[in-house]
């Protein structure tokens, strides 16, 4: 009898030990191909870091371990489609891409669809094919927020705006949405007139030369809209060249609305050169993306798109915004 009790106890102990150390759920490894169109500024690195970090945080809870396969197309839409094809050949489970060209990413979406791989467009929506879902920020709403606040600011200060618009790369759907929002608010509120539209192709040299030429051609211009502040030193240099680099409150100040609040934009906002802008969120969008990916992995239904809106920032409020990646020294350019 004594022997039986000892054996039973031993069995119970062994089972308990196994139970204690066994994983609550079977861990699942998921291969995700991340196709960046380019890495022109720290925001893209921040997105990637936050995605990996948040997914790793959730791993013990969800049991989903992500293996990230990252490639960068250096601004070449064809190369991006080739990179995605390489991912398809490697039989990844999911593909996420930030399109270089919204009009050509459709070919990659179709190729992934043919291979049965779910495709998520990130940040830049596709205009040439329908992905499984889209995750990003609403570019139209972002600039609308900026433009409406800018109109109020100009009116508050009794300024009749004559603005220069520094546009992005019009192959990029987000740049088009920002341009449309700027035009719409201009027509609706009449707080300014756009005296020059300058295409920059998101190149620092073109921001500089375009801004300088537009400022010289329109000496009465008193405001600028910058579609992204990632290379804002170019705009500062152009303003400086025409002796108009002055913070708010000074006589020769040019009113500036600049979107994104990237590290260079943050610095200029703190210096009083940029009057306001709306954030292009790194952390929140990455979190939204990982949550959406988890839903797909678990076989849950997803919506056609998940969009968040940015937050309005001014020199007074910018430091109080939580999870602003521009404040992370790791991403200070």
């Amino acid at each position: 009898m004594k022997k039986k009790i000892i054996v039973t106890l031993l069995v119970v102990v062994v089972i308990s030990v196994f139970a204690a150390f066994a994983p609550a759920e079977q861990e699942q490894t998921v291969k995700v191909c991340v196709s960046w169109n380019e890495k022109v500024h720290s925001l893209i690195q921040a997105w990637q870091d936050y995605m990996e970090m948040y997914a790793a945080e959730l791993e013990p809870e969800t049991g989903i371990k992500y293996e990230w396969i990252v490639n960068v197309a250096n601004g070449d839409a064809n190369l991006q489609n080739n990179n995605i094809q390489d991912c398809i050949n490697q039989e990844v489970d999911y593909i996420v891409a930030r399109a270089q060209d919204s009009g050509t990413i459709g070919a990659a979406i179709k190729a992934a669809d043919a291979a049965g791989i779910p495709f998520i467009t990130f940040d830049r929506a596709s205009t040439s094919g329908e992905p499984t879902t889209h995750v990003g920020e609403d570019g139209y709403l972002q600039t609308r927020t900026t433009a409406e606040a800018f109109a109020a600011l100009l009116k508050e200060n009794g300024v009749e705006g004559k603005c220069i618009e520094l546009q992005g790369d019009l192959l990029d759907n987000t740049a088009v949405l920002r341009h449309n929002a700027w035009k719409d608010v201009e027509e609706e509120l009449g707080a300014w007139t756009t005296v020059a539209e300058v295409p920059t192709e998101w190149k620092a040299e073109k921001f500089y030369q375009g801004a300088l030429n537009a400022l010289q051609a329109n000496p009465d211009a008193n405001c600028i809209y910058v579609a992204s502040d990632f290379a804002f030193s170019s705009v500062e240099n152009a303003l400086s060249a025409v002796d108009k680099l002055a913070p708010t409150g000074e006589e020769n100040h040019v009113w500036v609305a600049a979107d994104d609040v990237n590290p260079m934009g943050y610095e200029a906002m703190k210096a009083g050169i940029i009057d306001l802008g709306t954030t292009w969120e790194a952390y929140s969008v990455s979190v939204l993306f990982v949550d959406t990916l988890n839903k797909l992995v678990k076989g849950e239904a997803v919506e056609k798109e998940y969009l968040i809106s940015g937050r309005l920032a001014t020199p007074e409020t910018v430091d109080s915004l939580e999870y602003l990646y521009s404040l992370d020294p790791k991403y200070t350019d």
Binding site: V40, K203, A204, F207, Q209, F230, S233, S234, N237, M264
Partner: peptide, 15 residues
């Protein structure tokens, strides 16, 4: 000259 004009170097500089 290019770098001094724009105040920095971006990944697309010189393309």
């Amino acid at each position: 000259v290019m770098t001094l004009q724009v105040g920095g170097v971006t990944p697309t500089s010189g393309t």
